[in-house]
Computed example of a mutant assay.
Amino acid sequence: MEQFRNIGIIGRLDSVTVVETLRKLHAYLIDRNYQVILEENTSTMLPGHGLQVASSKLLGEICDLVIVVGGDGSMLGAARNLAKSKVPILGVNRGRLGFLTDIRPDELEDRLTEVLNGKYIEESRFLLDANVRRNGQSLGFGTALNDVVLHPGRSTRMIGFDLYIEGEFVYSQRSDGLIVSTPTGSTAYALSAGGPIMHPKLDAIVLVPMYPHTLSSRPIVVDGSSEIKIVVGAVGSNFPHVGCDGQTDISCAPGDTIYITRRPFKVRLIHPTSHNFYAACREKLGWASEIAAS
């Protein structure tokens, strides 16, 4: 197990509860003589902290561990910035579901002590790159840990598009769009649209249609290394958008092509030893914990 000495902290902005946890985390680490580096925006929430400050990307170069305090959205942003540096990331949940930020604030010190003593579970999650091209020229680029989504933006019109997987034509469809999700994102937006839950260890991508204008369209699961190409219909389509994790948005036009591929760098996530994917599903999704006695 790695020895963590230089620890970066990223917090969700504009949250009183996050500030409370940041103060507790700061005191815990300083009392134990760890070198603490605050992400530059996070530092504004702790006036007078007296700590080193760095950009989120620089944290990956100078830290042995980065702790994210917030919700899954905060973790998604940190993951995209830190994946290339291969620094492990630990999440403290100050959001709602918390599939990625799985340490509760009330157990912060106990769980953090375990992790810093080398008792933790590590896993890798892959990301997706999305490249929108027009007439052979790149129009926009984005990265996603959860999903890449073709959606109508503010329009209420359906989108016409053609789907290709590994260069092979799959179908033409008219719908509200398409969700291209990693296993990490299968418990997020894709789940709401009727997609399957995929175990995080799977090397697979799921494509989930959004309100397709047909009764026979279903989610498709493909190999994680597949190249996915979406061609926006040149006739009768509106001007859709491509979103990455709901945090990056690229405007498209009829005839544009979206290429989606697996990113070469994976995110390293750290979990307490008590972490269990199925237990998280039971808790977050309201699954029954046991069969009721007859």
Rank of each mutant, 00 (worst) to 15 (best):
L76M: 14
L76R: 08
L76I: 07
G77R: 14
A78D: 00
A78W: 03
A79S: 15
A79P: 05
A79T: 05
R80D: 12
R80I: 11
R80H: 14
N81R: 10
L82C: 00
A83I: 12
A83R: 04
A83L: 10
K84D: 14
K84M: 11
K86H: 14
K86Y: 06
V87L: 03
V87W: 07
I89G: 08
V92G: 07
N93M: 03
N93V: 04
R94V: 08
R96L: 13
R96H: 15
L97G: 05
L97Q: 09
L97A: 08
G98Q: 04
T101C: 12
D102K: 02
D102Q: 15
D102N: 12
P105R: 14
D106T: 10
D106I: 06
E107M: 15
E107S: 15
L108P: 09
L108T: 08
L108Y: 15
E109S: 07
E109F: 06
D110Y: 05
R111K: 15
V115D: 02
V115P: 05
L116K: 01
G118M: 07
K119H: 15
Y120Q: 05
E122S: 15
E123N: 00
E123F: 02
S124W: 03
R125K: 12
D129C: 04
A130Q: 09
A130K: 04
A130D: 04
A130E: 04
N131L: 10
N131Q: 12
R133L: 06
R134N: 13
Q137K: 11
G142F: 02
G142M: 07
T143F: 05
L145N: 01
L145T: 06
N146Q: 09
D147Q: 13
D147Y: 03
V148A: 10
V149N: 04
H151I: 02
P152Y: 01
G153V: 13
G153R: 03
R154L: 14
R154P: 09
S155F: 10
I159A: 08
F161W: 03
D162P: 01
L163Q: 09
E166K: 15
G167V: 02
F169S: 06
V170Y: 09
V170A: 10
R174Q: 10
R174I: 00
S175D: 08
G177Y: 07
G177W: 06
S181H: 09
T182K: 02
P183L: 08
T187Q: 00
A188L: 13
Y189A: 05
Y189E: 03
A190N: 09
A190D: 12
A193K: 02
P196V: 12
H199A: 13
A204P: 06
P209A: 10
P209E: 10
P209W: 03
Y211N: 15
P212M: 00
P212Q: 01
P212S: 07
H213N: 13
S216V: 13
S217R: 06
R218H: 07
R218Y: 08
R218M: 05
